[in-house]
Design a protein around this nucleic acid. Structure first.
Lengths: 218, 218
DNA sequence: TATTTGCGATACGATTGCGTCTCGTATCGT
DNA sequence: ACGATACGAGACGCAATCGTATCGCAAATA
């Protein structure tokens, strides 16, 4: 859901018969006059993400976004009342593509998942966004919440489901602490984002391996 | 080392006989005139850290720092040429107090260390600093480097030394992947800094426990 | 005491980004 | 055609912050 009622959505409650040209592509009633450009929408959000990644939420300025998107400032202010609202929608436009766990083994599933997450994180748009939100989250709570909802939560949910299934099938200890394990796994990915190295597949494999085996000597 | 030559340190190479009042507390030659106020130094650095934690490196402005420190702007510009140089020294003034590993067991040492690290991280000055640097590190490389040198590196070194000693004493598997384990441990602490919960001692214990035992069923 | 430097305070011009507004043009429904 | 709305472009005034300069006073050396 958008963070703000758009001008072209006067009221979702208004019902109209389906009669072709009066409806937008989303099936809602349409206002007279020239419709807003979907292309401009996308260009703005994309430019916002790029500049956000490059500059952070403070240094990002509407004028830059407008310039890069090739639109006028008014075109942005017509859609969002301010910087943060625009960014919330920009973050919401991100999509997370995670592999579906194959279920052959917890090890294979975790490696596949963490590899995919690290790969996504290698996209500067996401890694910078992520890192910046770590720091600015407190000052941009809605932005932070949107990011967690859009990106973080799905990742964490999949990891947890893999761990839980591992316990169910007996591949993992019965009394495995799912929360602690999730912390360890998420954290390892996280910590890998500091360094300059882009976290290759071997690294992920080693981390999963160590966690499954445990450090303690037998 | 300071990021900048202070005016009162014209040249470390100049040698002078020790003759009491002509020397500063650091034993360096002294200029005529009123010496700079150590109190102002400390007030500025402290205020800078506070405001940095509250606002981030962009929103932090010299005027605010001067106001909170109770000094004039000129007193700041007399010491540092700009914002980043001041912040580098401010970060350098942080001190890390880590417990010395007792060596009774890897488990106990790790729990003690991670607990201390989490506790330090609960200080907003540090946690916000840390989080902000995650995001702004690329734009403030010297600041980031100073923080890593002052805070991160010591922590990582101690954790690694504990793991290594564990391998030496046989408490940990001989072929333990120290790098991967360090990632897991650091990451778990890191990941815990997202949530609103302040990462209590129980959490740390569980994380260490799971990592030592391993998730895999026997 | 004379000199030198630091002090807090504040005024200053320059720069930057904000959010509003107004152009003339383009694209819709009627 | 006509009214309505969106478009790109950019001018405008406002506020914040920058870094410099200048007060008169304080604290040190010589």
């Amino acid at each position: 859901m958008s963070s703000r009622m758009r001008a072209q959505d006067p009221s979702p409650a208004v019902e109209r018969p389906v009669d072709g040209p009066r409806m937008t592509s989303t099936g809602e009633p349409r206002r007279p006059g020239r419709p807003r450009s979907e292309q401009a929408d996308q260009a703005i959000l994309s430019a916002a993400l790029d500049i956000f990644a490059a500059s952070g939420p403070d240094a990002l300025c509407i004028e830059q976004v407008a310039a890069r998107a090739g639109v006028g400032k008014a075109t942005i202010y017509r859609r969002w009342p301010g910087k943060e609202e625009m960014l919330v929608d920009a973050v919401g436009s991100l999509e997370t593509h995670l592999p579906v766990p194959q279920g052959r083994s917890v090890r294979a599933d975790l490696v596949a998942l963490l590899t995919a997450i690290c790969k996504e994180a290698a996209d500067p748009r996401r890694s910078r966004l992520f890192a910046l939100l770590q720091g600015e989250g407190l000052r941009y709570p809605r932005l932070m919440a949107k990011y967690v909802e859009t990106v973080v939560q799905p990742q964490r949910d999949v990891v947890r489901s893999v761990l839980r299934r591992g316990v169910a099938t007996g591949e993992l200890r019965e009394n495995t602490d799912i929360d602690a394990a999730t912390f360890l796994l998420n954290g390892a990915v996280l910590a890998s984002m500091y360094g300059p190295e882009p976290t290759d597949a071997r690294h992920v494999k080693r981390v999963v391996e160590e966690l499954l085996r445990g450090l303690a000597a037998r």
